[in-house]
Amino acid sequence: MKTKVLAIDDSRTIRNLLAATLEEAGFEYHCAVDGREGVDMYSDVDPDVVITDINMPNLDGFGVIEELRGTEINSKVPILVLTTESAPELKARARGAGATGWITKPFDDASLIFALKRVTGAAA
């Protein structure tokens, strides 16, 4: 069974990059274009891991984490935050909201897969 990833990012470029890397690595890839759509899609997709951008229209990444963590059933799903900065305060804030980890943009294939492995155990 493939590991299901729900990626939430308003940048088409980043979505395509994620799709290319993840599909090649054997993940099942789903994406949403903003936080609101991501949260709406969540129960349909029922992902094993969520990757979300921070700066997005409608609902930002922190909002996504809060909404997902706010419901009992999702309280354990790993959520990785995509960020361009590796600033400690941003990580702290994401973690405070309940993020599992982070992926620093620009990411390469190896670090993306490595991050997913550490939170899902899956190589694919």
């Binding site: 308003d10 949403a32 029922d46 992902p47 790993p78």
Partner: peptide, 26 residues
């Protein structure tokens, strides 16, 4: 004390309805 996320794998497979609506928002 808490369930592991691994159990999520066993949940029913999701409908694939989202592919068409990806780009619609915004």
């Amino acid at each position: 004390p808490e369930a592991t996320p691994a159990s999520a794998v066993e949940k029913a497979s999701a409908p694939k309805a989202e592919s068409g609506k990806q780009e619609q928002r915004g």
